[in-house]
């Protein structure tokens, strides 16, 4: 728990630094994309860390609630529901991703953007096959 607290505090500080850096150093038009990415990652890190630290604080004050949350998290039906929902969401969004990929070609987006999109799509497929292979051996 203490280790987690340190990690989340560090992530929160990193998030604040990222936001500050992007606001101070990337103000001009040329570094707009870099600034956007920094703010996005910084805000994400900050938000996640604050949320996790708050959850930890509540858990420490109310041990019975912590126990209940742990049960909910490790409950086999809940795990199955979460895994199934994630898998279904991934399957449903797959055609949209292909559509997005085609849009980058039709909209004559920069080649690197199309390549990155294809790379991400291929990575997803490779991970899926790797996991099928892994679970086939494991189960």
């Amino acid at each position: 728990m203490r280790g987690n607290k340190l990690i989340y505090t560090a992530a929160m500080i990193a998030g604040i630094i990222l936001i500050c850096v992007s606001l101070i150093f990337f103000g001009d038009e040329e570094s707009k994309i870099l600034s956007g990415i920094s703010i996005g990652i910084g805000a994400g890190l900050f938000g996640m860390s604050v949320a996790m630290l708050s959850i930890n604080a509540i858990d420490n004050k109310k041990p019975e609630l912590k126990k209940q949350n742990e049960i909910e998290l490790s409950d086999e039906r809940n795990i199955m529901i979460r895994d199934k929902a994630k898998a279904r969401a991934s399957d449903i969004t797959k055609p949209f991703f292909i559509l997005l990929l085609m849009l980058t070609i039709l909209a004559e987006a920069p080649l690197w953007l199309t390549c990155v999109a294809i790379g991400v799509f291929l990575l997803r497929e490779i991970i899926e096959f790797f996991l099928i292979f892994k679970y086939n051996k494991k189960m």
Partner: peptide, 26 residues
């Protein structure tokens, strides 16, 4: 029962309704 078995109350409800089949461990 949920507390004793360390599962959620919803799991007990779903088991009783026949909507969910438990793992062999449960």
């Amino acid at each position: 029962l949920a507390k004793e078995l360390e599962v959620s109350r919803q799991t007990i409800g779903s088991l009783e309704n026949g909507r969910y089949n438990p793992s062999i461990v449960l």
